[in-house]
């Protein structure tokens, strides 16, 4: 897994490439903790170049969601891989209550998270 972070429109974008499994999940978790501790309440995960994600990665996303819930935070996931999307849907990540949204393109994710559009 390769992980880079950059800020666009005041929103951190976690750009990830490769496979997100149990072995690399802690590294991703540390990065998310850092961003949330710094006061960010919105995160965009760019999975455009992610070709595998298992419950290691899913756990990290659910943790982030739980950390952001008290401050009404939101998460946007950019992903086009039907297999990865299928797994995320299977575990209910895009359930209305989770405030996690799926986008096909990064600019759409930023636009939605920038605005005051209520989720759910």
């Amino acid at each position: 897994m390769e992980l880079t972070v950059r800020i666009e429109e005041k929103i951190p974008i976690l750009d990830i490439a490769g496979e997100i499994d149990h072995f690399v999940a802690p590294k991703l978790q540390r990065q998310i903790d850092e961003l949330i501790d710094a006061g960010n309440d919105r995160l965009v995960f760019d999975f455009s170049n992610v070709n595998y994600l298992d419950s290691g990665g899913i756990g990290v996303l659910f943790n982030a969601m739980q950390q952001l819930a008290p401050r009404q935070g939101r998460i946007g996931i950019v992903c086009g891989d039907p297999n990865v999307i299928r797994i995320l849907e299977l575990v209910g990540l895009f359930d209305k209550r989770t405030r996690v949204l799926l986008f096909g393109r990064k600019d759409k994710a930023l636009k939605a998270l920038e605005g005051k559009i209520e989720v759910g």
């Binding site: 419950s55 290691g56 899913i58 756990g59 575990v91």
Partner: peptide
Amino acid sequence: AVSYRGHGILLMLA
């Protein structure tokens, strides 16, 4: 249920 491993069994079964 809330750790990294929470969805592992669910995924295997599904």
